[in-house]
Design a protein around this nucleic acid. Structure first.
Length: 493
RNA sequence: GGCGCCAUGGUCUAACGGUUAGGACACGUCUCUUUCAAGGACGCGGCAGGGGUUCAACUCCCCUUGGCGCUACCA
């Protein structure tokens, strides 16, 4: 099998988002699958949009997914540096080569002139594009302007005839008419290369075999192919996975919310769930299984399975999948991961005694199976940690049960009974509760529902006896009396 | 507007000329059950439309329609 060299080439202009990371996962899986190399290259050529901290996001996201790169910024490698901002001399060298060959030229047009020209073209419903004014400049004129220090860019001279065809491994051959391509800028007036140029130079020098990037890049690929040709280089293979769409079917972006990849970490998605889900965002193994370990993904991942149409990001399915992984995960691990949420909510102290940790673990063992995301832990377990519980008596189910006339008697008798028993186990509690119910000649539901509400303040939750056993004798009895007080105080009309 | 990509249920996807069009999420009903989840069972719901090609089209070709993307000295 061909060993690929693939690169994940994010631009530090914002947080790492779902689309970025999906591509990085595809890159990584492809590299692992073929025994190839996964390279991280930072495309920091836009000084104006540079966002401090963006780089750290990328590192953290990669780290969280456990998809380390083989060559890149920190670890280095034989094709560094891996920051484009540190490779300016290389771009300069090849840009000058293109100018000398006559495949590129200096342009001194101001952005005002360009904007006006574009406006004019649009008004006349002409295709927009540079009018090549500066191509008419004589070598002497160009040299003079450069000498004077007039701000200049370098543009690639796109052939006006013919067409450019390339093969996208996902879609097959794609052809563009050259005359519709603009004489695009390759070196900006600040001396930095544009994406188009830098990525071509770097992908070649870094010996990238497969350029994997989202579908939105298809229309600029012919520009890249033209540059490879002009430089006498073989173009790499192109792989364009589909765009990821929001629920409204437009390209997933900030306005859809929840596109920042690390938000998912913070909300309590498990990395293995994200890996599994993201791998399926635009790729299909072609079988009915859809829950995969990372190793299975590595074994199965292939370019043929990448789909050719945009895919909608279905958060509900992600949540379902995360729930599956939480249920499968080890209790100790889930407990550990839940602690920060509980601490943040002020439900448990920052420094836990071993008793407190045991209690928390017992609580989570009861609720683990009903979490979709770890942050759910706060609202489903809070009653275990609060000293007193709110009854939210006006809530429909609550009022229905607690307003029944037998309730005060039931709670009083149960409290008295529980005070007497020595063991507070699931079995002894069930026996006790049922016994008190029988004494009052009440059916199961008439006993269990009110007791649950009195003890937890909730109408829903894990099994009542398990819950009571975890809560322990003191909390249970105190809550029974507390509820009795509330009912007496007139909450029960 | 121009150029490009794409088109199976609400969403993700299987089918690679011959299937009662399969699976998953979501949704609904039932079941289990002390409640809620989870689990189990069942169900709702799809080949965008029109032409061809073929003995036979979801599958191949063309057109239409629709969706999306690109159209910067941003990536």
């Amino acid at each position: 099998m061909e060993k690929v060299r693939v690169r994940f080439a994010p631009s530090p202009t914002g947080f790492a988002h779902i689309g970025n990371m999906r591509n990085s996962v595809f890159d990584w899986l492809l590299a692992k699958h073929t025994g190839g190399t996964f390279i991280l290259r930072i495309e920091d050529t836009d000084r104006a949009r540079y966002v401090p901290g963006a780089l750290e996001e990328i590192f953290e996201a990669l780290d969280w997914l456990e998809t380390p790169y083989n060559e890149g910024p920190v670890t280095g490698g034989p094709h560094g540096p891996y920051f484009q901002s540190e490779r300016l001399d290389l771009y300069d060298k090849y840009a000058k080569q293109l100018v000398e060959q006559g495949d590129a030229y200096y342009c001194f047009c101001t952005s005002e002139r360009l904007a006006e020209m574009r406006k004019d073209q649009e008004a006349r419903k002409q295709p927009t594009g540079y009018d090549r004014a500066c191509l008419q400049l004589s070598p002497a004129e160009t040299a003079a302007k450069l000498q004077e220090g007039v701000p200049a860019v370098i543009r690639f001279k796109v052939p006006r005839e013919g067409s450019t065809t390339f093969s996208d491994l996902v879609r097959g051959d794609i052809t563009f008419e050259n005359r519709l391509l603009d004489d695009f800028v390759i070196i900006k007036s600040d001396g930095y290369p544009t994406y188009h140029f830098a990525s071509v130079v770097d992908d070649h020098l870094m010996e990238i075999t497969h350029v994997l990037r989202s579908e939105e890049w298809i229309s600029s690929t012919p520009k890249h192919v033209l540059m490879y040709n002009a430089l006498g280089w073989d173009a790499p293979k192109f792989v364009h996975p589909p765009l990821i769409l929001g629920p409204d079917k437009s390209k997933l972006s900030k306005r859809h919310g929840a596109v920042r990849f690390l938000d998912y970490k913070e909300r309590g998605f498990l990395p293995e769930a994200m890996m599994n889900f993201v791998a399926l965002l635009g790729w299909s193994p072609g079988e009915e299984q859809e829950l995969f370990t990372t190793q299975e993904l590595i074994d199965k991942f292939n370019i043929e399975g990448i789909v050719n149409h945009p895919v909608v990001f279905d958060i509900q399915k992600l949540e379902w999948m995360n729930g599956v992984y939480i249920r499968a995960a080890d209790l100790g691990r889930i407990t550990e991961l839940c602690l920060p949420y509980l601490q943040e909510a002020g439900l448990i102290p920052k420094d836990l005694t071993s008793d407190e940790l045991d209690y928390t673990r017992a609580v989570i063992s009861l609720e683990k199976d009903r979490m979709k995301v770890l942050s759910d832990v706060v609202h489903i377990t809070d009653f275990f940690f609060r000293t007193e519980v709110d009854l939210e008596y006006e809530e429909k189910g609550m009022k229905k049960w607690l307003s029944k006339p037998h309730v005060p008697d039931l709670l009083r008798k149960l409290a008295a009974h529980l005070t007497e028993i020595s063991e507070f186990t699931i079995e002894s509690l069930e026996e006790s509760v049922r016994k008190v119910g029988e004494e009052l000649e009440l059916s199961g539901g008439h006993v269990i529902h009110p007791v649950r509400m009195a003890v937890t303040g909730r109408t829903v939750g894990p099994g009542l006896f398990e819950t009571m056993a975890v809560l322990g004798k003191d909390r249970v009895i105190s809550r029974l009396y507390h509820t009795l007080d509330l009912l007496k105080a007139g909450q029960a009309d």
